[in-house]
């Protein structure tokens, strides 16, 4: 069987080192307590087209976030998915660069996310300033958690916080997608696939079958 090379280099990590020079809009350090939809220019860059080289992927559009937005994202990433005994934090895996790649893309879904996420980053600063007279990134860990607590839990969203909560949920989805796609995230969650093997698929382990059968028995179903 041919050994197919597997690059582990991330396009967005490679891009991250050069991104600081390619800043787009200004820092959004608005104040006041309420959500504001930022007036953003649409991304004009070209996409990768209908016949991109699939074996050597590249990201053709420039990254557009400024250093302040990137720092805020890094802090948010570390808070959302912090280091624990299983894996490092999302910030250390450059998830801010992934979000930058995402919101800088010229496609409709990503442009919609750009509006939501950039406005959301500005809201984090505004909310933090209203509460603590500090930008989100300058606030302390406990203060940042207070801001997150207002928007992170589905059953605990107070009136007026719906839009920031929508921003948070979307950013969390993207952060989790990026995080668990990384080798560290896949190891944490236990994804063991994308690994070629010769011969018939071995199927579930004895341990996995025992767990299944315990579950089936509890449900009054026939074990396998």
């Amino acid at each position: 069987m041919a050994e197919i090379s597997r690059r582990v280099t991330l396009s967005w990590i490679a891009a991250a080192s050069s991104s600081l020079a390619v800043t787009g809009c200004d820092s959004q350090s608005t104040s006041g307590g309420l959500w504001k939809d930022l007036p953003l220019e649409p991304i004009q860059a070209k996409g990768y087209g209908l016949d991109a080289k699939l074996t050597e992927p590249t990201v053709p559009w420039p990254l557009t976030l400024d250093p302040v937005q990137r720092e805020t994202l890094r802090i948010a990433a570390d808070l959302m998915l912090p280091a624990d005994s299983h894996s490092p934090s999302a910030g250390t895996l450059h998830l801010d660069a992934f979000i930058d790649e995402w919101v800088s893309a010229p496609y409709p879904v990503q442009q919609k996310d750009r509006d939501l996420i950039l406005s959301g980053l500005a809201w984090l600063d505004a909310e933090s300033a209203q509460r603590f007279k500090l930008d989100f990134r300058k606030a302390g860990d406990a203060q940042r958690r207070q801001v997150f607590d207002a928007i992170a839990f589905k059953k605990n969203i107070k009136p007026g916080y719906e839009k920031p909560a929508e921003f948070f949920a979307r950013l969390r989805t993207l952060m989790m997608s990026g995080f668990y796609s990384m080798p560290e995230g896949m190891a944490d969650i236990g994804y063991m696939g994308n690994t070629p093997s010769v011969g018939p698929y071995p199927g579930p382990t004895q341990e996995a079958l025992a767990h299944l059968n315990a579950g089936l028995t509890k449900l009054g179903l026939k074990p396998v």
Binding site: I4, R6, R7, V8, T9, L10, S11, G47, Y48, G49, L50, A52, L54, T55, P57, T58, V59, F98, E101, W102, A105, Y107, P108, V109, Q110, S177, G178, S181, M182, N194, P196
Partner: peptide
């Protein structure tokens, strides 16, 4: 693109109007 990881592709290999 056999055995390529999603993280190696633009937008984690997400659906786009191009693909």
């Amino acid at each position: 693109a056999m055995l390529k990881w999603n993280r190696e592709a633009p937008l984690l290999a997400s659906s786009t109007p191009d693909k």
